[in-house]
Design a protein around this nucleic acid. Sequence first.
DNA 1: CGGCCGTTTGAGCCACATCAACCGGGGTGG
DNA 2: CCACCCCGGTTGATGTGGCTCAAACGGCCG
Lengths: 319, 319
Amino acid sequence: MLLRLSVKNRSPVELLALAADRRELAVGKSATVRAQLINEAKLLEFHADLRAWMQQTEPDAKRPAPWSDGRLPEWLLAAELASVLSPLRSRMALSIADQQALLTNAVPRRVDKGRCLLEQGEPEHALFFLCDGAARAFRTMGDGVQQTVAHFVPGDVINPDSLFRPVASRNSVCMLEPSAVLEIPISHLASLAGERPAILRAMFIETARHASIHKEWIFSLGRLSAESRLAHLLCEVWYRRFQCAPEEGEAFDFPMTQQQLADTLGLSSVHVNRVLQSLRRQDLIALRKGELVIKNWTALCDIAQFDPGYLQYPAPVGL
Amino acid sequence: MLLRLSVKNRSPVELLALAADRRELAVGKSATVRAQLINEAKLLEFHADLRAWMQQTEPDAKRPAPWSDGRLPEWLLAAELASVLSPLRSRMALSIADQQALLTNAVPRRVDKGRCLLEQGEPEHALFFLCDGAARAFRTMGDGVQQTVAHFVPGDVINPDSLFRPVASRNSVCMLEPSAVLEIPISHLASLAGERPAILRAMFIETARHASIHKEWIFSLGRLSAESRLAHLLCEVWYRRFQCAPEEGEAFDFPMTQQQLADTLGLSSVHVNRVLQSLRRQDLIALRKGELVIKNWTALCDIAQFDPGYLQYPAPVGL
DNA sequence: CGGCCGTTTGAGCCACATCAACCGGGGTGG
DNA sequence: CCACCCCGGTTGATGTGGCTCAAACGGCCG
């Protein structure tokens, strides 16, 4: 679909040139094509900024960076960082300076599959950005039955409302596959948000975005059939991944077990299995070994009643 | 339960004295009793502030107040205004000055039952506070089936995330009974939020609160039986009303039809009817003509798996 | 008085749950 | 290297919660 070219191994200057190309191309086109091209241009410009930023070494003087010399630990891949930085700019509209302030206060961590970032009933001591991997937030009932209440893809802030959360977290958050996160202690976050209103606004935007998604899930759980619900979830996750990593295409990483799908959709795992088979038989998707391929996007959107409007942030009206 | 005394017809000084009494009483008590007493004290202090504020006439000079002479229109009852002001202070932690700034930019409006504040597919031009009455946000599908995604009681901000919302609203919001709202044009809100970060933070808190509630609904829709779901909704609405108007007691205004309950719970109206009867037969509730009486709170919470933790704002960690 | 809206009741049915068994692959320990 | 196991996916048989359709009921309002 969109951005097929690789952004790796290109200099900031090259990237900016490519972006300019796209903006030029966009002029005479129809509305949707123009939007796509401009989107691509923005992404390219962002990657240019990122390149530039990563090459420069000007750590925040006021607070020592958690990575000792102000440089990223070498095991944190540029691609992983990029998938966080992209939404910081495009969704949350943070300036480079604000992004740096945020990042120099963040501690990068690797988290194993199945490991929890937050535990139901325990206080939240930190804010988390998901850089790579996948996570879900869920509630476990007394009888062991679970219900997923949120799903996270790279670039998402896991708990943007952590500043205002009641003491005990209501849900656990745990990784669906080996992941990388950035962690910011709440105390740091509070002072950051105090000094830089843009960061508070960014967390607000992320919270609003989550709320939008929650409403969509409520609609889905309340009124859609099992097949539509499943299709809707697949569309949503695909679209959210696409927003952050447009170069991935129709095949992508989807590490949920059928039981976890069931816990997300309010179904039993047996039924999820049958519905998945039905979707496969209709040649809409292929899902094997944690890789999902969307084979017929329009048809899938159709049965899902999926309309990505609710995922389009930032909104046109700024502050 | 708590605050049984009337706050009407008392001077600010009297109210402050009563509050002081409560704080004094609280000293030796157990944690829960102390919390209740302190809560009462805070409410009393708030009402004292409110009295004082309403008597004073110092309209914001920079912007003319919508009500011409800087005084409230006489048809807007003090009680209605109080139910907005209470959460402005207790949940959103706004100073009197911020509250005034907000209110002098707000236009009070009466809205008929069934009338919509926001229409699915149309842009949102204003922020709304619900002063009195009740409202719901819902989505209508192609075949006319509806799903409610949020429910509002007096004191709620209807669309706190309106600043960052995509152009087209995804849901309609319409009144369940004759209501009073305060309306703030988005343009005003934007400049307000720019000048006064506390107001931005207040909207953030409200958005976070809504998100908490949404997660609870997702849990409820996904994993609870029809009976538990209904009980859960009743508990939630009662508790939210109680937070803003503790003097109301176990009987309160509940203007939803069975069809609307069904649209909220993802059920059919026929089934809602039968479940309601079951709850009545168990002597847990009485619901007639828009008045709901909770006859056995603990039992109802029990089958609902209701734990009000998610409604406890503000959170202990401030900014 | 009639019409309308919301509630109530009954009969039949279907989507999805539950229970239970089997399969296949990857990891682990002997 | 094999034996084993455990986890996740698959399949079938059977049960049930909640849906649909349909009709009657009751209060309110014009």
